[in-house]
Design a protein around this nucleic acid. Structure first.
Length: 497
DNA sequence: CGCGTTGTATATAGATACAACGCGGTGCTCTATT
């Protein structure tokens, strides 16, 4: 037994590494940049946690959600690893100061990309011995960075300020161009790249076309009734999430709940817990639900509205069947469904009016607080203001010959075009009934289909119809005993991360 | 990209025509107020 195995056992209580963990950890320890794409639940966190504990200095872990950071810190503390902290708005001013003044005492610091951009934080980090920069859920750089959370694009810059420590990017799903984007935005040089297949052979794939929204609803209710549970239904709006959860509750004896970003943190946490414990069997949600959730026994994922790109689809359908048991992905659509995602893309970007107004404000006074207040009082989207503000800065760094407005409008045009193309790719996948769906999904990830799945897709032919998949029937899901629930809880704790 | 709701004008006391508008997801953070 080598030192790594000893430490693995001593700190984390595992007697052996999972598949390529050791290799990854050795690369990280030797100071190489590493890009790792591997399924949720296969032990990604350990790939930075173990090196962080072994190396001199402090590891900085960038994480997208406060809840994820808190979970990770808590888990490590439970393992007896105490010199760990998170730095985010969850802390009081006093606590923040305390963490900043004691940085060298910590082995790992979890931080949001937004907090990482704060001047006092960057100043402290530039004088700290940073052992490693890990970016968890790194696809966020590409998926959120360009429009929604632009601080994701500035992690590379922060990395330079920290003295360019070794960098580790971790994600479960990233197509080749997203990988390229991540490597580029993090300034990674000749990284070790490890990518597992995204193929999930235990999940059968169907798309079902309906004539109207109403027919879609009837089909949804029918599917939910027949399929083994628990399961998830993805929808495009908060309102629809609530409506469909109600409809399901009214028509069958299964507990269903809505989940979306408009609910309070408490409600979201409660519903998530109930779902994890099988107390809620059906969850109707927007794309707010998913990240950081590792529930092994989800039997189906139904898309009532389809996502705007294939990667989101793969991420979402991939939440089914983590336990390896047979599971189903169904996408329901109608002819008119193409309208909604196009509207969403349009809505995501600032209008020309917003660009003009916000640029004018920035020209006269670019202190961000003032900008924000004026923009809000004008009724513009906060996200749009920050988008413009970000590309304003980029314009300044590039010393582009065009005016700020021209530059920003050019960015918008380019990004919109990109997003529309991704959407068209998704729609072509849906409507192409001549080619194996799995094969096409794998192609978008630069993979080729190795061996066809037994229950592949509606093009290849799924031998077992929906009706036969049903085993529990309308009898409902058996309630778990408290012993089983406790066991399930403990299992979750062990398998997380 | 389209749909349903609300607002306005017209012309006449209830109804119609048509324009304008809102609808719509993902989360961090800081600040002021209770």
């Amino acid at each position: 037994m080598g030192t790594l195995d000893n430490r693995l056992y001593e700190w984390f209580g595992y007697s052996s590494f999972k598949h390529n963990q050791r290799e990854i950890i050795e690369s990280v320890l030797s100071g190489e940049d590493v890009f790792l794409m591997t399924a949720t639940g296969s032990g990604k966190s350990l790939c930075y946690q173990l090196p962080a504990l072994l190396k001199q200095g402090t590891a900085i872990i960038v994480s997208p959600l406060l809840a994820l950071m808190e979970n990770q810190v808590q888990e490590l503390k439970q393992l007896g690893i105490k010199n760990v902290a998170s730095y985010n708005s969850f802390l009081s001013l006093k606590e923040k100061k305390s963490v900043l003044n004691r940085l060298p005492e910590y082995k790992l610091i979890y931080i949001s990309p937004e907090s990482l951009q704060q001047k006092d934080v960057l100043d402290k980090l530039s004088r700290l011995n940073v052992s490693l920069l890990a970016v968890d859920e790194a696809h966020c750089i590409s998926q959120w960075g360009h429009e929604f959370r632009t601080d994701y694009l500035k992690i590379g810059e922060a990395r330079n300020k920290m003295g360019s420590p070794p960098c580790l990017a971790l994600t479960a799903t990233a197509a080749p161009e997203v990988r390229k984007d991540i490597l580029d935005k993090l300034n990674m040089k000749d990284p070790v790249i490890k990518c597992d297949t995204v193929d999930r052979t235990n999940i059968s794939i169907r798309t079902i076309k309906k004539e109207t929204e109403e027919e879609k609803r009837i089909e949804l209710i029918d599917c939910v009734r027949k399929l083994p549970k628990p399961g998830m239904v993805y929808v495009g709006s908060r309102k629809k999430a609530e409506e469909l959860a109600e409809a399901i509750k009214n028509e069958m004896p299964f507990a269903a709940s809505a989940y979306h970003g408009g609910m309070t943190k408490e409600d979201r946490h409660l519903i998530q817990q109930q779902f994890l414990l099988d107390e809620v069997q059906i969850i109707c949600c927007t794309n707010a639900f998913g990240m950081g959730i590792n529930k092994p026994n989800i039997r189906f994922v139904i898309h009532f509205d389809y996502p705007k790109d294939i990667e989101s689809y793969v991420q979402e359908m991939g939440r089914a069947g983590r336990d390896g048991q047979r599971s189903t992905s169904i996408l329901l659509y109608t002819e008119i469904d193409h309208v909604f995602p196009r509207k969403m893309i349009e809505w995501e970007f600032p209008t020309e009016e917003e660009v003009q107004y916000i640029c004018e404000v920035l020209r006269t006074d670019d202190s961000h607080d003032v900008t924000r207040k004026r923009v809000e009082s004008y009724g513009f989207e906060d996200v749009h203001a920050r988008f413009i503000s970000h590309y304003w800065e980029e314009w300044r760094n590039k010393e582009d010959a065009r005016s700020q407005e021209e530059f920003i409008n050019m960015v918008i045009k380019r990004r919109k075009g990109w997003k529309f193309n991704k959407l068209i790719q998704m729609e072509e996948w849906i409507s192409n009934n001549n080619k194996c769906r799995r094969e096409t999904l794998l192609e978008t990830f630069g993979e080729t289909l190795q061996s066809p799945a037994k229950q592949c897709c509606d093009v290849c032919g799924i031998t077992e119809p929906l009706e036969d998949v049903d085993e529990a029937g309308d009898a409902g899901f058996p309630m778990m005993s408290w012993q089983d629930r406790l066991y399930a809880l403990l299992q979750q704790q062990t398998h997380k991360g």
